[in-house]
Simulated scan of single mutants.
Amino acid sequence: MKAFLAAVAVAFGIALAPSAALAEAPRLLVVATTPSMGVIARTVGGDRVDVQVLVAPDRDAHTLNARPSMIAHLRRADLVLAVGAQLEEGWLPAALDAAANPRLRKGQPGYFAAAEPLHLRPTRFDPALGGHVHGEGNPHLNLSPPRMITVAHAFADRLAALAPESAPAFEAAAAAFEDALRSRLPALRARFGAPLRLVAHHEEFDYFAEWLPVELVGFVEEKPGVPPGPAHLARLIEQQRGQAGTIVLANYQPQAPARRVADELGWPLHALALEPATADAESYFALIEHWVDSLAQ
């Protein structure tokens, strides 16, 4: 952890120290929709940005409403960093419209959606069933550290477009974040023995398969965002009976349906935080270790 912070400090010190004009440059206000996006903004932007996060770490970003405080932050922002892929569709467009900040319009340098530089994992649900299906792909990219690395570099490029004098520092900070994450992943993967079978409440955990030896074999939900009925839960239990596995869900999702499945199968159940407690790299590193601590027991 100290090595990562030192690497970022050195990157910004070397890149920024020679320029007296840069020392007087105003800091950019970045409004991030979620704590994970705040991690990207604060880690890559360093001393050149102030960061405001709109969604608390224990809230579901699907289900919020636009609030006056959100609108006030967006009105003053130089850049908004959203997840995109319809995650915030229920409230962010309305908040941006009310803020009436021309810098944050889609297509402007001040609007950045993390999903845009990525080829997202497709939804695992049949759109014909209805519910909150992610037609643009699974937006829960923060559950994949490799995806967060890609977003960090893309965001460094965007910040460089807004503050070109700091471009070397932004890219160096993204590289330090990448090095810190990649150095952790082999040891985290090695804590698993055989591949772990997961039944998840929702499809966000599909991203675990990109960096951990896990397989997502079913969902507590039948339709995304819709409480499951007893017939679906009965079918799920029968499909998994006699096999080993683990039930996972987000800490803000209803536990009763998942608990029924876990009790019937004799499987452990883990309600996991999906967002870091604070919008900084150290908290994100602690979050991915928390995921592995829970699953690799």
Rank of each mutant, 00 (worst) to 15 (best):
A6I: 05
A66M: 12
P57S: 10
L28I: 10
L104N: 07
A21W: 09
P57T: 01
A23P: 03
A32T: 01
L54H: 02
T63V: 04
A9H: 08
I14R: 11
A56M: 04
L92T: 03
S19T: 09
F4R: 06
L29T: 06
H62T: 00
P26H: 09
P35H: 11
D50F: 09
L79S: 07
G90D: 14
L16P: 00
F12Y: 06
A7K: 06
S36N: 08
R76Y: 13
V31S: 04
S36K: 01
V39G: 04
P18A: 14
P102R: 14
P102Y: 15
G13F: 05
A94S: 12
Q52M: 07
A21I: 02
G45Y: 13
V83F: 01
I71K: 08
A6S: 13
P68E: 15
L74V: 04
A11I: 05
P35R: 04
H73C: 08
N65L: 10
A98C: 03
V31M: 09
V83C: 04
D78S: 10
G45R: 08
A77E: 12
P57N: 09
I71L: 06
T43E: 11
V30L: 07
A95N: 09
R67C: 02
G84M: 07
A72G: 08
L79Y: 11
L5E: 15
R103W: 14
G46D: 09
L28W: 13
L22K: 02
F12T: 05
P102N: 13
V31P: 02
L28R: 11
L74M: 08
E88D: 05
R59C: 04
P26E: 14
L16Q: 11
D97Q: 14
H62A: 01
T33K: 05
P93F: 12
A11Q: 11
P35D: 13
A56F: 07
I40V: 14
V39T: 07
M70A: 12
A56Y: 07
P68C: 11
H62F: 01
A61R: 01
V51A: 08
L74T: 02
V30E: 01
F12K: 00
L92A: 07
V8L: 13
L87A: 07
R67K: 15
A23M: 10
P18G: 13
V10A: 15
I14K: 08
H73Y: 14
Q86C: 03
D50C: 00
R103A: 15
V39I: 02
E88H: 00
A77I: 11
G38I: 02
D47L: 09
Q52F: 14
Q86G: 07
A98L: 15
V55T: 13
M37T: 03
T43C: 03
L81Q: 02
G84I: 02
L87K: 02
A66Y: 08
A6H: 10
A11V: 05
A25M: 11
V53E: 03
L104D: 10
A20H: 09
V31A: 12
A66L: 06
T34G: 03
P26D: 09
V83K: 01
D78P: 00
D50T: 08
A98K: 12
V80T: 11
A20N: 10
A23L: 13
A56V: 00
V83M: 12
A82W: 06
A15Y: 02
N101E: 13
G38D: 10
R42V: 00
L104A: 08
H73I: 00
E89V: 08
